[in-house]
Design a protein around this nucleic acid. Structure first.
Lengths: 243, 243
DNA sequence: AGAATAGTGTCTCTAAGACATTATCGC
DNA sequence: GCGATAATGTCTTAGAGACACTATTCT
């Protein structure tokens, strides 16, 4: 279990961190025909949240998002995109933050920096569910996948952030461009198909879906086939190596 | 000339303002077949920039963007959308900020809040050029429209912000949905047509363009015609009142 | 009438949707 | 061969693009 990477743990005073702004990545996975979201529980609180984090003073915001994503999942070089900032002046609740800090064994004064107004930069990431190595730390009681439609109640506006992320994801999926990032490097057309159906929430006719996907010219068919089942085995596909 | 609305002018200490985060709206207009951008000059510096501003502690980020837009243009209820945040840790330059403050007659200490790292929330607005009443203040030497392809060199990454805003605008225009916001309430199909051609930077065949626009079902033809010229006068259109 | 610009009709071609058909695998 | 699933073929329809044509206004 990794522990040293979360700045809050070793740094409750927030030294070297930007105040008033946080990064909240919505990390999507796909497994057993279900869209999954990564949710953490703050230690000893029963409070669930997005696996967010702060930005270091000498670090780009994008770098902070990558760092947090890598710290939580063990993955790098994944699809990660900033999609919106959430800036309502009263979107956070000092009482809730206080509970979180107390759960971490830290008793904040009323003027503690993390009790003040916070703006959140929303990112969404698409990761290969089978490759993730979820990591908790002292501030995190649990870090787990939840079915998209069965996430527990979340603090602040985190549910809104997830919903907005899904809207953006759907919009981008409609362009048929980025769905592959949620699958292992090698996959079948049916897997890709069910992924799209699940995320978009509607049926797509298999012949048309395949035609569309192949016409994009970014898939490569691998001439090996699956084994085992009592029916025709599907082709395997992967991303075309490069441009 | 309005003066009292820019918090920097009456508040160089930044009391009541969020530190480390600013709003930079890219305000687009359209006039004489040219896409225009609103650019300010910081007083006594020769430094050009987007007409940005700060966020008040008790104000949503979106409200701050609206306030700044209204303050500069006199307009409210215009198309205004957050499109990206710019978070490179070294995107601003303390020396440049110092020049700006000195130009305002204020000599900052080296630890002045506005010399530190700043994150910018990028918005873009589409306004009716003919309706704007541009407003300067004590911190602003000028506030003027520039042809999109002839803006002067800008401070920081403001040119990047403009370019990214135009990319987003083009993408949205391709969906054929939001171009009307750049025109007066009543316009001809040709005006709409040249607007799209100019912004998208490509030719569109008039019959197809008209067919597409009318098929959207959001335009209403007003059965009055223009006067004067020695040729057929065009129909006038406006947005359909509501849904 | 004729110049100039506005607006319409229509042909072609491509792409999407629906559905029928063929192919392959293991029993 | 048979059941099950994968993959392909093709018919229909909708829309984009190109271009020819008609309409209107004023000189």
């Amino acid at each position: 279990m990794l522990r040293q990477n979360d700045p809050r743990e070793i740094n409750p005073q927030g030294n070297g961190l930007l105040k008033g702004i946080a990064v909240d990545p919505v990390i999507f996975g796909f497994h057993e025909n279900q869209l999954k979201v990564l949710i953490i529980e703050h230690t000893n609180t029963g409070l669930y949240a997005l696996p967010g984090g702060y930005i270091q003073e000498n670090e780009d915001v994008d770098e902070a998002a990558e760092r947090i994503l890598t710290m939580r999942t063990g993955l790098s070089d994944v699809y990660l995109e900033q999609f919106h900032i959430f800036g309502k002046y009263n979107r956070t609740d000092p009482e809730v933050v206080k509970k979180i800090l107390i759960g971490q064994g830290f008793t904040p004064t009323d003027d503690h920096w993390s009790l003040k107004r916070f703006i959140s930069v929303g990112y969404y990431a698409l990761v290969d569910y089978t490759k993730t190595r979820l990591t908790t730390d002292l501030t995190t009681g649990s870090c787990d996948w939840y079915d998209f439609d069965a996430v527990p109640p979340l603090i602040f506006d985190h549910q809104l952030i997830i919903d907005k992320a899904l809207t953006t994801l759907r919009h981008n999926l409609d362009q048929m461009l980025i769905g592959f990032n949620l699958l292992p490097p090698i996959f079948t057309m049916v897997e890709l198909h069910t992924l799209y159906e699940t995320v978009l929430g509607k049926k797509l006719l298999p012949p048309n879906f395949q035609r569309k996907m192949l016409s994009l010219g970014i898939l490569e068919r691998i001439e090996k086939k699956k084994t085992g089942k009592a029916h025709k085995s599907p082709y395997l596909y992967r991303f075309k190596p490069s441009e």
